[in-house]
Write a protein that binds this DNA or RNA. Structure first.
Lengths: 213, 213
DNA sequence: ACGAATTGACTGATCGATCAGTCAGGGCTA
DNA sequence: TAGCCCTGACTGATCGATCAGTCAATTCGT
């Protein structure tokens, strides 16, 4: 009867969603150690004790933020990979697009997760374990798909193409404005422009790695 | 007479050197916020108060660590750039070698600075200012040199080649073991091997960016 | 002897975490 | 329906620990 009433209950409550969003923003701004539970609770407009009630420790709250966001990114990536015809001429371009587009997010939107994503490459123990758990499975799929597309590609070369391409993505989204500053631009690069440049670079690098094997 | 006695006084005392080394290791392990002045003082085998006597604040100690290490890296990079014949066929390879080799350090050595170096790409305000101060000048020289070597290279393209290459370097040294894990290797990659692969990838990516401009 | 170097003892602030307790609401019994 | 109880959600107050930073006193080098 009531149109505003959702047919199914949300998997998480609105409050928990608010906390996770606030936590994501705070962790992105200050890093794990720099972030404060108090600051997160203020940002989420709840009491600090509620954070511990729902998540136990700061460590688990952080892990939950990573888990939620990585799931969205991995789902997007896998969906894009599913659509690719691996025998088509532009297969390599579209594989890298599947790698780059989800973390870049919507065209005009903010990227609060970008700094956390970038920070994951810095191998502190906490992040290493989370990367291994949440990102390695999809990473392995990328490596496998790359192997089938690049001629005579062994696993080592494919894994390198993946890793180095990911590094260049970090360089683009991890810091604010440095690339534009070195380029001599005043306006920030648009998402589609970033995507085009990253794909071209990754593809060129991949082909170079293959031909010198 | 005494052979062990240095001819000139060191610019910094041994104690200060010890503190800076301990601080570098601690900052690398835990990040700026995670690092503790107490832990640094223990690692350097001095009192915590001595850290404040010499450096004032944690912030200034961190800045000094970055300044010292970046100076070494920039000096090495500039020396390598000076030796390059920009008209030679392998000029592009040698430019990227000048970019990659200094942060990679000696062949068999540890890389305690690698994680700090990687962390600098994550654009928190503190790091942004330090990068701009200590790394931008040499970065601009790389961009200028790249422009002269790559055919029809505008500043934007050259800056992209620089930035994306740097990102792939981060991917290789920032995390421990992930690249090797995805490659299916058990032994870590040797420095010279890393260098060869990074150069090949960066060169291929650069040429691809140019040809599609 | 004099200044630079170094120390132990200490401070206020802030951290993550814990606690007892409030409150609204849903089910159960009679 | 009325009374009771249970539970999940949430809070203010506060805990002990740790943090960066301070300072008077002491040692060291010359």
């Amino acid at each position: 009867m009531n149109a505003a009433k959702p047919a199914v209950a949300p998997v998480v409550s609105q409050t928990i969603e608010d906390i996770l969003l606030a936590a994501e923003a705070e962790f992105a701004e200050r890093g794990f150690e720099g972030a404060g539970m108090k600051a997160i609770s203020v940002k989420a407009a709840v009491s600090q004790a509620l954070l511990h009630y729902h998540f136990g420790t700061k460590e688990r709250l952080y892990a939950e933020v990573i888990a939620q966001r990585s799931k969205k990114i991995n789902d997007e990536r896998n969906a894009l990979l599913d659509q690719i015809d691996l025998t088509a001429a532009d297969a390599l371009d579209r594989i890298f697009e599947a790698l780059f587009r989800p973390p870049l997010g919507p065209a005009g939107g903010e990227r609060p997760y970008a700094r956390i994503f970038s920070g994951l490459v810095v191998g502190r123990e906490r992040n290493q374990a989370l990367v291994k758990e949440h990102y390695d499975p999809t990473a392995k799929r990328f490596v496998a798909v790359l192997r089938r597309v690049i001629p005579a590609g062994d696993q080592g070369t494919a894994a390198l193409c993946y890793s180095l391409a990911l590094g260049s993505l970090i360089a683009m989204i991890g810091r604010d404005g440095r690339v534009e500053r070195l380029m001599g631009r005043d306006a920030p690069l648009k998402t589609e422009e970033i995507l085009r440049l990253l794909i071209a670079h990754a593809k060129g690098g991949a082909l170079a790695l293959i031909s010198q094997t």
